[in-house]
């Protein structure tokens, strides 16, 4: 993944191809006899063509975030294959590969938890540059300033701590950090959740603009189908650790085929207003 992977695979190939991915966690119960294994991924098959926006939807606990973490190298899958830009990736996590996968980055739902509260904004976006050994000190400082500007944070943002930003600004900061390593695939795990409508729309616009400018591929994890309708061209429905349905967004929202897909559709809050 060190040399430019984007050139190594043919154009018609999917950027990301996942085959039979499995992951089980040991779960501690309240009593010794209740320790159990939770199979969060039970053979996931998934493909994302370069430049696409795919939305992964599914009830809570269906395995969406586990899949995201396995793709971003935060967790090691138990079995299966991950192909990225024409190469098969080793199944590993950060303990085996401290640099992670620079070309696959993740933006989290709660930047409050994923941003180090003791680092300034500049330090937060510089961290991935240090890990990947990007440039010299002065270049990194310049790059950090560029990144903060790119996501719409003001010139005075660099010296501030995460707690000194609003929720929307913290979301911008975590996007800047994810972009630092120049990813090709961004995994947006509920990256718009917990924001009010106006802020949500602003962050969504930022992500749409970045995608258009940089030809990024997005894997959205969303629970709000109103956002799915607007942001994704294709949808994959996840249920109990498997992908049970994939379809173009319009088709899935009109006529979902799988029972979980139908359930999700029924839960949309409709008011006359949203159908304008």
């Amino acid at each position: 993944m060190n040399s430019d992977p984007a050139e190594k695979f043919s154009q018609d190939d999917a950027l990301l191809r996942v085959r039979g991915l499995c992951k089980a966690y040991a779960r501690r119960g309240n009593w010794a006899w209740s320790h159990s294994r939770v199979e969060s991924l039970r053979g996931v098959d998934l493909e994302i063509p370069a430049g696409e926006s795919l939305a992964l939807i599914g009830a809570s606990g269906s395995g969406k975030s586990s899949l995201a973490r396995c793709l971003a190298c935060l967790e090691k899958p138990d079995c299966g294959e991950i192909w990225f830009a024409g190469r098969k990736l080793a199944l590993e996590d950060v303990s085996a590969n401290p640099r992670g996968r620079p070309k696959i980055q993740m933006v989290f739902q709660d930047p409050g938890l994923s941003l180090n509260p003791r680092l300034t904004a500049t330090e937060i976006v510089t961290e991935p540059l240090l890990i990947t050994g990007w440039g010299a000190g002065a270049d990194r400082a310049e790059r950090a300033a560029e990144l903060l500007k790119l996501v719409g944070l003001g010139a005075d943002a660099g010296g501030r701590l995460p707690s000194q930003f609003s929720g929307g600004q913290r979301r911008r900061l975590s996007i800047a950090r994810a972009l630092a390593a120049e990813p090709i695939l961004l995994i947006l795990d509920e990256a718009l959740a917990g924001l009010d409508l106006a802020t949500q729309a602003q962050i969504a616009n930022l992500l749409l603009d970045l995608q258009a400018e940089r030809g990024l591929t997005y894997l959205w994890i969303l629970h709000d189908l109103r956002l799915v309708a607007r942001l994704a061209s294709r949808v994959a429905v996840m249920d109990e650790g498997r992908i049970v349905e994939t379809a173009p967004t319009a088709q899935l929202l009109r006529d979902p085929q799988s029972p979980p897909g139908r359930l999700l559709k029924e839960s949309i809050l409709t008011t006359p207003l949203w159908i304008s």
Partner: peptide, 26 residues
């Protein structure tokens, strides 16, 4: 009016652009 304009349509593929028309600023 601004807040409701960031409202999200359920039915995709309508002619409108995908960007949201939202209230600027904080």
């Amino acid at each position: 009016r601004g807040l409701l304009r960031c409202g999200l349509p359920v039915i995709p593929g309508s002619a409108q652009a995908r960007r949201f028309d939202c209230v600027p600023g904080e």
